[in-house]
Design a protein around this nucleic acid. Structure first.
Lengths: 150, 150
DNA sequence: GAGATTAGTTCGATCGGCTGACCATCGTCA
DNA sequence: TGACGATGGTCAGCCGATCGAACTAATCTC
């Protein structure tokens, strides 16, 4: 333990979480824009990122992203218009439709993944392997009690 | 943030950060509303939270919250109208004005602080003291390379 | 002191997100 | 079996957040 927390300004945990989150979002967003994927917004991305490999229902997306169905629907509209996603019928329920990644979305994913990996590498390098793993582990633990969706 | 399809265990760090952040924000917001402070928005709170004890310039607030000066100005307008903050002249620069916490803002702060402490306690209890400290430490480390303001 | 820079505001537009109202399908239970 | 509540989704209308452009006033630099 050593030094008795010399930190005078104990920045609150909420802010402490938000700062790197925002940095990550910006980095990925910039990388995508640089690769030509500049025709979508952070809000759209926040929804798109939650689409599973086999498609995801709108309601599920809405819950997961913590927005109303209407908002999610609206964002999916835009994503559909620009070719990032596609709505397909849900075979198991005629009311529902599955939102799936479309061609342009599929093209953007590797770019986003690469940017993500790049940032994670930088963070890991900065923190060191041990602290990095501890961070991931603690965040996963936190998720158990803070993820309203899951 | 846009990232590839989530695999449950390997959920990307951005999302892992976002989930508890959002949960924290919601909890504090609810507590404030319950205590009668229901006449302001999350966006306003995000700005207000960054006001220092001796007041903070608008431009500084804008940078720190990563919004434009116009947006910050607009939010401060509202906060001023509802009595949470006050604009005072900056003695060191006649162009500038210091945004300070006003009466209603000062009244809200202990409520927010209590809610924050409550949530932190819950999180600490869930993670255990050791992991909790590791989390805080890692986040502080991350801030060194992700906080564009500082 | 002229010109560039900086702090802040005003204006106008767009986008994100919400509520309310609605339709179609599904599931259940009398 | 069929009526009715619950569920998945859309449409319409509204407000707040945020941005870009253009502007004023004060400051800084030579």
């Amino acid at each position: 333990m050593a030094a008795p927390a010399p930190v005078p300004e104990e920045l609150n945990v909420g802010l402490l979480l938000f700062i790197p989150y925002r940095a990550m979002e910006n980095r990925i967003f910039d990388a995508l824009a640089l690769a030509g994927f500049d025709d979508f917004s952070p809000a759209q991305a926040r929804v798109m990122q939650r689409i599973g490999p086999d498609g995801t229902r709108l309601t599920e997306l809405a819950e997961s992203a913590q927005v109303t169905k209407q908002t999610a629907s609206h964002l999916v509209d835009q994503l559909e218009r620009t070719g990032y996603v596609r709505r397909t019928p849900d075979p198991s329920d005629a009311r529902a439709r599955l939102v799936r990644i479309a061609e342009r979305g599929a093209a953007a994913q590797p770019v986003a993944a690469a940017a993500l990996a790049q940032v994670e590498d930088e963070w890991r390098a900065h923190l060191g392997e041990r602290r990095w793993r501890q961070l991931r582990e603690a965040l996963a633990g936190l998720r158990e009690i803070t993820d309203p969706y899951r």
